[in-house]
């Protein structure tokens, strides 16, 4: 479902990604862990082209985009759009549109991008709101919702485009601990439904329970990857061990 080959990315003179290779099956849930600034968010943002990698190749569900320049020709732009349509993104800071109601937030993209009729888009938006437990908030504005509710709307908004892959960029980092569970529950539900997902998170408990595979990032490289029991119980790499010790100490 996802193939990444030799992905490089630098900002100015700092190299952020050192040739990442990654392959992921349909329905697989992958969790990226690692210290701050290790490149995991950049990796995720490259996957849906919010960042243009310097070189490398990304394929999602048969659509391939090469790194290098931002797209120029109509064909390149269409490739980029197709790649974005195949992936849904959830941000740390929710990024809901404050001037639109919850329902409008969800229906905007299907209506504008896919030119879906209003009734159809609304019906699906309402179904998605039921799924994330917010059917009562359809006409609320984002600023009247709690952080957890906003993030659930953001997930529904991404799902409304019927992506093949969901990308989560630290979805619970901006939330108070008591609001995290409601978001994690929705994500768990998606995993159970067989959604292909990549999640960047510091929630080790969630990673341990949900991930099919864990990738440990540091210094722009994948230092270790494997099933949760291996990574958490018998990490092979010294750096992984140290990282887990520190995070465990912080969150017993």
């Amino acid at each position: 479902m996802i193939t990444v080959e030799k992905l490089f990315k630098s900002y100015a003179k700092t190299r952020v990604l050192h040739g990442i290779d990654h392959a992921q099956q349909r329905g697989e849930a992958v969790v990226l862990i690692g210290p701050s600034g290790c490149g995991k968010s950049t990796f995720l943002r490259c996957l849906n082209q919010l960042e243009i990698p310097d070189s490398g190749r990304i394929t999602i569900d048969g659509v391939t985009v090469e790194g290098g320049q931002p797209p120029r020709t109509a064909r390149e732009k269409e490739q980029q759009r197709q790649l974005r349509l195949r992936s849904g993104m959830v941000f740390q800071s929710f990024n809901l549109f404050p001037h639109l109601t919850v329902l409008e937030n969800i229906t905007l993209s299907p209506r504008v991008v896919k030119r879906e009729p209003a009734a159809e888009a609304e019906a699906r938006a309402r179904a998605l709101l039921v799924k994330v437990g917010l059917e009562a908030k359809a006409f609320a504005y984002p600023n009247h919702l709690s952080g957890g509710q906003q993030q659930r709307v953001a997930i529904a908004r991404a799902l409304a485009m019927e992506p093949r892959v969901m990308l989560f960029d630290e979805p619970t980092s901006a939330l108070d601990p008591e609001l995290r569970d409601e978001v994690l529950r929705v994500m768990l539900q998606l995993v159970e439904e067989g959604m292909t997902m990549i999640v960047v998170t510091h929630e080790m408990q969630f990673a341990r329970e949900v991930a099919d595979r864990i990738l440990f990032f540091e210094g722009g490289r994948v230092l270790e990857s494997g099933p949760p029991e291996q990574i958490f119980s018998h990490p092979l790499n010294e750096r992984t061990r140290e990282f887990l010790r520190r995070t465990d100490a912080r969150r017993p």
């Binding site: 919010l50 759009r81 990024n95």
Partner: peptide
Amino acid sequence: LPRGQTEAALALGLSRSQAFIHI
């Protein structure tokens, strides 16, 4: 406006001009 607004719109598949007009 926060940069995340444009990013969210682009991630949802809107073009730059659609993002400008609607968001």
